[in-house]
Simulated assay, not measured.
Amino acid sequence: MDATADDLRAMLDRDRIRDCLVRLARGEDRRDAVTISASLWPDSITDYGVFKGSFDAYLAWVVPGADAITNTQHVLGQSFIDLDGDSAKVETQVISYHRVDMGEGERDTCIGGRYLDRMEKRDGVWRIAERMMLYDWFQDWGAAIDWSHGVMGMGFSGPHFSGRSVGDHSETFFGKGR
């Protein structure tokens, strides 16, 4: 291959790696086993510090997820991608929001950290082979908003505007299981 073809291949690999990371974040937020499964290899290992295990154990932990966590949102920042043929080491900044029912009502919490992923391309497909989460900060923002009042003093025109981990309007928008 010439230098331009090598550069294009590397650009496509980086784009497919980022697509895999975004797909996993959405799958975790929606607790969607199909989407999560398309992002990790079946022999992968995941280590979040509070959980470490095989792909099957991880999937059982995330789907359906803790009943106490009613909503999540993972916002991904930049990814540093170190390509090495059909493998890559990737560090991705993440801010994860969690609405948690701690027994005295729902609270809004937020974690900042970084995913360290070892990724592999098998048969032309990039997925995560190993993931570790590094935690940089945590914040408990306090009691969660009561969505029945809308936002900023303005009521919602319908019940589908507030998000949930499972069963919210995004499932209708994309079609369940997508």
Rank of each mutant, 00 (worst) to 15 (best):
Y97W: 10
F51K: 04
Q78E: 04
S39V: 00
G49R: 12
G105T: 11
D43R: 08
I81C: 05
C110L: 13
G65D: 08
P42H: 09
R122N: 00
D86H: 00
D56S: 13
D117P: 02
S96P: 04
T46V: 15
D43K: 11
G112Y: 11
A60E: 12
D82H: 04
A68L: 03
T109Y: 06
Q93K: 08
K121V: 13
D82K: 00
M119W: 05
G124Q: 03
D117Q: 00
G85V: 04
G85A: 05
R107E: 01
R99K: 06
E130W: 09
D86A: 09
D47S: 12
R99A: 12
G112L: 01
T70I: 05
V125W: 08
N71Y: 15
N71M: 14
E91C: 03
R114L: 07
R122W: 07
V75Q: 04
P42K: 04
R127K: 09
E130V: 13
L116Y: 13
S96E: 08
E104C: 05
D47G: 14
C110D: 06
A68C: 06
A68R: 11
V90C: 07
A60V: 12
E91K: 04
D101T: 07
D123A: 14
V125G: 08
T70N: 02
S39P: 00
M132L: 15
D56P: 03
Y97E: 04
G77M: 01
W61I: 13
K121E: 15
W41Q: 12
A66G: 08
T72W: 08
D43W: 07
D117W: 04
A66K: 07
G124V: 11
A57Y: 00
V62G: 03
I81F: 09
H74M: 05
V62D: 09
L76N: 10
M119T: 12
R114C: 08
K89G: 11
I128T: 10
E104A: 15
L59K: 01
L59F: 03
L40R: 01
V90F: 12
W41K: 04
D56A: 13
G77H: 02
A57E: 07
L116R: 14
F51Y: 10
A38V: 13
T46A: 15
S37F: 06
S87E: 09
D117C: 13
E106I: 12
K52Q: 14
Y97T: 01
T92S: 02
L76Y: 00
D47W: 01
S54M: 11
E104P: 10
L83G: 10
G103Y: 04
P64C: 10
L40E: 03
G49H: 04
I69N: 08
G124K: 06
I45G: 14
I81G: 03
